[in-house]
Design a protein around this nucleic acid. Structure first.
Lengths: 198, 198
DNA sequence: AGAATCAAAGCACGACCGTTCGGAAAAATT
DNA sequence: AATTTTTCCGAACGGTCGTGCTTTGATTCT
């Protein structure tokens, strides 16, 4: 890996951690330069605008999500086990890898009403993610685990909603039972999505 | 109402609308002064620090929430009708009164990992709100509408989670079906909370 | 009406913001 | 080893940030 790529990676990693705590808009070039031990202008040269930096950090987060949450989950059996694995890998990822919580959740709420290219960029990532949840549910339907009349988009909506609730309970409220609560709610969602026995 | 109170009200209203769109941290004294047509220092004099301004805006939002969401809902019948009314008044409030979405949701995710008095202040408001949801469910239990073994805290968790999901779908994703999706999910939550017939 | 209080403005401050530019050092390529 | 390209720094820019201070004008109270 070339020198440039290497330091850029370092910068993005530091930026992502910072953003998970204090937000992407609060990310400042000067502060970030201090953290990675280089000059403002030296750091700036890698991105050429703050907006580009923000978008690259979001891309970096999305790649990270795929690597640490999605890929590991796909190795599990199709259907329900895979869905449960997503919850588990996401818990681990968002709580272990960052000082703050899941950076994608933070970004989603930060840019939900802030027009611009960053928002547009982020929206695409979110749609991709929600589509993956929907597909995971569809697989469970195809496997005969979930009811064949299940609305998989509705499933994705509820599935993601519960993640957001967990994020708030564990981060803002610092509720120690958050993870347990989340898992119970997901179990309930899965249970009522199951194929009716006959 | 004295002159001071009056302009302060004007400022808070403008600040809240601004924050619902761009966030509470992006709120700047100068920009806000421009919006309400007064000088920076004149506006500053009402709050004496930016932090105090932020907290007063959050208090203002919480009061607003109580007035436009909670109070109207309480006039409905105890139990399920009241719970459904909360969803309806909240929909109306968060979509009609602000340029951005619900300011309390925005604040919650903005301060979830940003330590300080603003965060502490906000946390109290959120706990109060969640407690109200829990109590609303408890009333439905007492009225015999919900199952007597229902975990009302779990109900509040899911109820609030769905609100967060709705917020994201309607704001970031601009999904036109968001409200419908939300209502369906709430119906499902209520349905499975109901007392088992025997 | 006069006195006391308050609201608002103007101005200035130091700090930090994103960004530009030119040059030096380091790395990659030939 | 020479040359080109990349990486990084230092200094400086125009702006905006939050926050004081002082003064003037409006409002409120006696």
């Amino acid at each position: 890996m070339s020198k440039g790529k290497e330091t850029r990676e370092t910068i993005l990693r530091a930026a992502l951690d910072f953003a998970s705590k204090l937000g992407f808009e609060s990310l400042s070039i000067g502060e970030l330069a201090k953290r990675v031990g280089m000059s403002k202008s030296g750091l700036f040269g890698h991105f050429n605008s703050k907006e580009k930096l923000q978008m690259m950090v979001i891309d970096y987060a999305a790649d990270n999500f795929t690597e640490h949450v999605f890929i590991p989950a796909i190795s599990k059996d199709r259907g329900i086990p895979r869905i449960l694995a997503i919850v588990e890998t996401w818990h681990r990822w968002s709580s272990r890898y960052f000082t703050g919580g899941c950076p994608l959740v933070a970004a989603a709420f930060e840019y939900d009403d802030r027009p611009g290219p960053v928002r547009d960029h982020l929206t695409e990532h979110q749609k991709t993610m929600l589509n993956s949840f929907q597909k995971a549910a569809q697989i469970a339907v195809d496997e005969g685990q979930f009811d064949r009349n299940l609305d998989c988009d509705a499933f994705a909506f509820e599935f993601y909603s519960l993640m957001l609730g967990y994020h708030l309970y564990s981060r803002l409220l610092q509720d120690d039972d958050a993870k347990f609560r989340h898992l119970e709610a997901v179990d309930s969602l899965i249970e009522r999505s199951k194929a009716k026995e006959q």
